[in-house]
Write a protein that binds this DNA or RNA. Structure first.
Lengths: 275, 275
DNA sequence: CACTGTGAAAGATTTCACAGCA
DNA sequence: TGCTGTGAAATCTTTCACAGTG
């Protein structure tokens, strides 16, 4: 679920409509027409497709791609239909074409420089995360409060003071800020980022950030994820009642050791690099 | 969001219905009746409420709580209505009561031991994350492949080898596994966790895990979050067209330095502890 | 009177199922 | 024939708006 996004107000929406009142997917508002939920999945498809490309797989059917991405094929086809018709009936999709189109749709053709604020464990992990640069998100700036960290290079980039956020972000053309500070400092850091013209924030701090409506915030909250899992544990143990025949045994196909399809996925994406 | 969840099949749903065919919210399936989306938000309300409790605020209205949590008050009231009627009309909610009821609903009255697999930067961050133990998720076991790490304590817990997952998880009664390994190892680690009886997985590796249907997986994927942000940047810069009067200036109330409401939220939740 | 709790409407997302094309 | 692309139905989620209550 979703998942977790945190922006209150909606933009005034200057709906582009054809004169007869029916919204048609013209180039201009094609982007606007894609459901939020589908966008999130497109990013997943992109990763899976990269895996296929690496294994020299050139064509996939909606069914294959759907299984690899963990969704059903109808949903996948509908999602892809939002970005256009790039499949071949009776055959499937060309991996390279689909990658290109999804990248275009997600705006990945241009680079987005990232600033990481809060260089603790998580900040280190983010600064070193191989998946970012390789996917068009170079980490361009690091910030912290700790005087001992100033100038210390982490993942090749020297740490600056949070007071320099406006200057440094402007200089290095930062478009995304990743807030990995403790809760207390998060809103303050966020305000500085907004001042500096950053319009996209990825918030790891356990706080609901207050931002002007033109700023997009996405929140990653570990405690919340845990609690959602906890809810499901609780719900299950509560279902001690009937162990329905069909429910008892696993789906056979589902459990299998290290499935081929994802086995070699994008090695550059290794999550963790030790300091 | 939202967020992002990743479980394919649904359970066969042995719907409890009253004999006349209308589903009534009996204690048994009360949990089942709560929409997935509402569960995620309940966890957020819980955090905000903890903040209020700490500031010695004993009563909140739906409006206050909604603002602090970044949702609208109608949604908040509906969400709370799923867990029961604990408000007082004309007054609001008692903070302590609400905290208790949400905790009960989310199954937080019992502890859930967590195992972290993959002790790199992210693993360190997770092992040291103060928000877990304080919220009923003690980190009880750490695993890695690296021989140099075996027995080394991280956040007070010695690292074990991934081969010992079944034994150690059973011994320490682990219910949640947090996979912070590189992509390659993730499915293998996941399989071992499932073998060990773990039914809840928080997956940070950029892979779609294949699991039996009784296992719940939640995925946190940084690259995907970035790409969603990228999409919104792209959409906006595409909207170079009309700069609608209302859209140009910020919402006044929204932007304000370090809002009171969240200023002192749960200090124990500090995201990052330096090694 | 102020605020909760909730049916019912509106909107968004998912699923179905099949027409249509290579 | 096999698979895509997509209207239409089903389902889930949000919002509205107001009756009901301490």
């Amino acid at each position: 679920m979703r998942d977790g996004d945190a922006h209150g107000a909606e933009e005034p929406a200057s709906e582009q409509q054809s004169s007869d009142g029916v919204t048609i997917p013209e180039p201009q508002d094609r982007a606007k027409a894609i459901p939020e939920a589908a966008v999130a999945r497109l990013a997943v498809y992109l990763r899976v497709l990269s895996g296929f490309a690496e294994q020299e797989v050139h064509t996939v059917s909606s069914e294959e791609l759907a299984v690899a991405a963990g969704v059903n094929s109808a949903k996948l086809r509908k999602d892809l239909s939002y970005i256009g018709s790039y499949g071949t009936r009776g055959v499937g999709y060309e991996v390279a074409v689909l990658i290109g189109q999804i990248e275009r749709t997600l705006g990945l053709t241009q680079q987005h420089s990232v600033a990481v604020i809060g260089i603790g464990n998580l900040g280190h992990a983010l600064a070193n995360y191989g998946g970012f640069p390789s996917r068009g998100f170079p980490v361009a700036a690091l910030f912290d409060l700790d005087p001992d960290l100033m100038g210390v290079p982490v993942g090749g980039i020297p740490v600056d003071h949070v007071d320099d956020i406006p200057r440094v972000c402007a200089e290095r053309d930062v478009t995304i800020g990743a807030i990995a500070t403790p809760a207390k400092g998060a809103q303050d850091v966020c305000d500085r980022l907004v001042q500096a013209g950053v319009r996209c924030v990825l918030n790891f701090a356990p706080v609901v950030l207050q931002v002007p409506e033109e700023v997009e915030v996405r929140k990653v909250d570990l405690a919340v994820e845990m609690q959602i899992l906890s809810f499901h544990v609780a719900r299950r143990s509560q279902e001690t009642s009937e162990s329905t025949a069909s429910g008892a045994e696993a789906d056979g196909a589902a459990q299998s050791k290290t499935r081929d399809v994802n086995a070699g996925v994008n090695p550059v994406d290794g999550m963790v690099v030790r300091p």
